[in-house]
Lab assay of single mutants.
Amino acid sequence: MLYVKVKTEDGEELVLEVEGMTEDEIREELAKAGFKIEEIEVYEVEP
């Protein structure tokens, strides 16, 4: 499983499960949803 931890400019932290997306695609999708991203951390969790 691939997850991203996202910190927004307003200090909110989100953890999202993503599969088959690049970091650029993740940033693009979050921007479309109205999030202003300060930091993204991508990590993989073994089942």
Score class of each variant (00 low, 15 high):
Met1Trp: 13
Met1Asp: 02
Met1Cys: 06
Met1Thr: 13
Met1Asn: 07
Leu2Asn: 05
Leu2Gln: 08
Leu2Ser: 10
Leu2Tyr: 15
Tyr3Cys: 03
Tyr3Val: 13
Val4His: 00
Val4Ile: 08
Val4Met: 02
Val4Ala: 05
Lys5His: 08
Lys5Asp: 01
Lys5Asn: 03
Val6His: 01
Val6Phe: 12
Lys7His: 09
Thr8Asp: 04
Thr8Glu: 01
Thr8Cys: 15
Thr8Ile: 05
Glu9Phe: 09
Glu9Val: 11
Glu9Leu: 11
Asp10Arg: 08
Asp10Thr: 12
Asp10Gly: 08
Asp10Ser: 12
Asp10Tyr: 11
Asp10Ala: 09
Gly11Tyr: 02
Gly11Val: 01
Glu12Gln: 14
Glu12Val: 14
Glu12Trp: 14
Glu12Ile: 14
Glu12Arg: 15
Glu12Asn: 11
Glu13Thr: 13
Glu13Asn: 05
Glu13Phe: 14
Glu13Gln: 07
Glu13Lys: 03
Glu13Ser: 10
Leu14Gln: 04
Val15Ala: 04
Val15Pro: 00
Leu16Gln: 01
Glu17Leu: 14
Glu17Ala: 13
Glu17Thr: 12
Glu17Asn: 08
Glu17Ile: 15
Glu17Tyr: 15
Val18Leu: 06
Val18Glu: 00
Val18Phe: 15
Val18Ile: 09
Val18Met: 11
Glu19Met: 13
Gly20Ala: 07
Gly20Ser: 05
Gly20Asp: 06
Met21Phe: 08
Met21Lys: 12
Met21Ser: 06
Met21Val: 06
Met21Leu: 10
Thr22Asn: 08
Thr22Pro: 02
Thr22Trp: 03
Thr22Arg: 03
Glu23Thr: 10
Glu23His: 07
Glu23Leu: 15
Glu23Gly: 06
Asp24Pro: 05
Asp24Val: 12
Asp24Gln: 12
Asp24Asn: 12
Asp24Thr: 10
Asp24Leu: 08
Asp24His: 08
Glu25Thr: 05
Glu25Leu: 05
Glu25Val: 04
Ile26Val: 08
Ile26Tyr: 01
Arg27Asn: 02
Arg27Ala: 03
Arg27Leu: 08
Glu28Gln: 11
Glu28Cys: 04
Glu29Tyr: 15
Glu29Asn: 09
Glu29Lys: 12
Glu29Ala: 14
Leu30Glu: 00
Leu30Phe: 06
Ala31Met: 11
Ala31Glu: 11
Ala31Leu: 12
Lys32His: 06
Lys32Val: 05
Lys32Tyr: 05
Ala33Thr: 06
Ala33Asp: 03
Gly34Ser: 02
Gly34Gln: 01
Gly34Ile: 01
Gly34Pro: 03
Gly34Trp: 02
Phe35Gly: 01
Phe35Ala: 02
Phe35Lys: 02
Phe35Pro: 00
Phe35Met: 04
Lys36Tyr: 06
Lys36Pro: 05
Lys36Asn: 10
Lys36Leu: 08
Lys36Glu: 05
Lys36Val: 07
Ile37Pro: 12
Ile37Glu: 05
Ile37Cys: 11
Ile37Trp: 10
Ile37Thr: 07
Ile37Val: 11
Ile37Leu: 07
Glu38Ser: 12
Glu38Ala: 14
Glu39Asn: 13
Glu39Tyr: 14
Glu39Leu: 14
Glu39Ile: 14
Ile40Phe: 09
Ile40Ser: 02
Ile40Cys: 10
Ile40Asn: 02
Ile40His: 01
Glu41Ile: 14
Glu41Thr: 11
Glu41Lys: 07
Glu41Met: 11
Val42Lys: 05
Val42Asn: 03
Val42His: 05
Val42Trp: 14
Val42Thr: 05
Val42Cys: 03
Val42Tyr: 14
Val42Met: 09
Val42Ala: 04
Tyr43Phe: 13
Tyr43Cys: 03
Tyr43Leu: 10
Glu44Thr: 10
Glu44Phe: 11
Glu44Asn: 10
Glu44Gly: 08
Glu44Leu: 11
Val45Tyr: 14
Val45Ile: 12
Val45Phe: 12
Val45Leu: 08
Glu46Ile: 12
Glu46Ala: 12
Glu46Trp: 14
Pro47His: 07
Pro47Phe: 11
Pro47Trp: 11
Pro47Met: 08
